[in-house]
């Protein structure tokens, strides 16, 4: 085994401290029994209790969840379709322009995206609320899905689709029965990405929303302006927990899948 040199140990320590110390402090203080966020007064879970009685937070959480599920689903459908056309469509007129335009929102300042959406919603006289946030989130997260899916499609063996067509499948069947099941992991991670993006978006949601809908980040942001409360710490700790569990599960799943494939291959080689 390689031993780490002292230099590597130091850089590793500092790097991880930089990344995780703020979160660690936040989680620790969420268990503080004092109402003052910065003064430690013993361990307690009371803020978790009061959090679950706070109607406003629970409402906001529900809105956020609805928005995230709907927008990431739409974004996944649209983003996958866009990726498919861009990778598979061959050279059609304006392909370069289209692919450039799909990826532009990745680097577009959020304020501008939000503002332009707001103007659009006002222009067409749409009532702002959950639906407009969903639309806005779909718009900006679909390009992320499209990036993830198209990088998978680029390495996808095209002859598989050709084989499906050759065996009499329609274009749509070839996609549904062959392409989609194979690129499913990329589509799912695209969905997860869109879901997370929607979950923590503040800027665009603030532009797109109306008085009827408040998302969790908006709620946190507005209450922090009145001072950080231990409840916010508790809420944030829960979010950190959810995200970590999700990430760890996803990586464990993919690792287990890789191990299984390898084992099965070895078994097959022994059998012959």
């Amino acid at each position: 085994m390689n031993r780490l040199s002292p230099f590597n140990v130091v850089s590793l320590t500092f790097g991880f401290a930089f990344l995780y110390l703020p979160m660690l402090i936040l989680v620790i203080f969420s268990f503080n029994s004092s109402k003052l966020v910065t003064v430690w007064a013993g361990f307690s879970t009371r803020w978790y209790g009061t959090l679950f009685q706070n109607e406003a937070f629970l409402d906001a959480a529900w809105v956020t969840l609805k928005v995230a599920v709907m927008s990431s689903t739409f974004a996944t459908v649209l983003g996958t379709m866009a990726a498919y056309v861009l990778v598979r469509g061959g050279r059609f007129m304006g392909r370069t322009l289209f692919s450039g335009m799909i990826y532009a929102p990745l680097v577009m300042p959020e304020v501008i995206t939000g503002l332009s959406l707001l103007l659009l919603f006002i222009g067409i006289g749409m009532d702002r609320g959950v639906m407009t946030i969903v639309l806005a989130h779909t718009t900006f997260s679909m390009c992320y899905v499209s990036v993830v899916v198209s990088s998978r499609l680029a390495t996808f063996d095209r002859s598989l689709e050709e084989a499906a067509l050759d065996l009499g499948a329609s274009q749509f069947d070839a996609f549904r029965l062959v392409t989609l099941p194979i690129i499913a992991p990329a589509v799912i991670s695209g969905w997860l990405l869109a879901f997370t993006l929607s979950l923590d978006d503040l800027v665009i949601a603030s532009f797109a929303t109306g008085p009827s809908a408040t998302t969790l980040p908006m709620k946190i942001w507005s209450s922090v302006r009145l001072g950080v409360s231990p409840e916010i710490n508790a809420l944030s700790s829960i979010l950190i927990g959810i995200v970590s569990v999700g990430v760890i599960t996803a990586s464990l799943m993919s690792k287990r899948h890789a191990v299984r494939v390898r084992r099965e291959e070895q078994a097959a080689q022994r059998a012959t």
Partner: peptide
């Protein structure tokens, strides 16, 4: 017409 591909192109799933 059916074709057997040089790379086999079996559906892995």
């Amino acid at each position: 017409v059916n074709m057997m591909f040089q790379s086999y192109a079996l559906f892995p799933h």
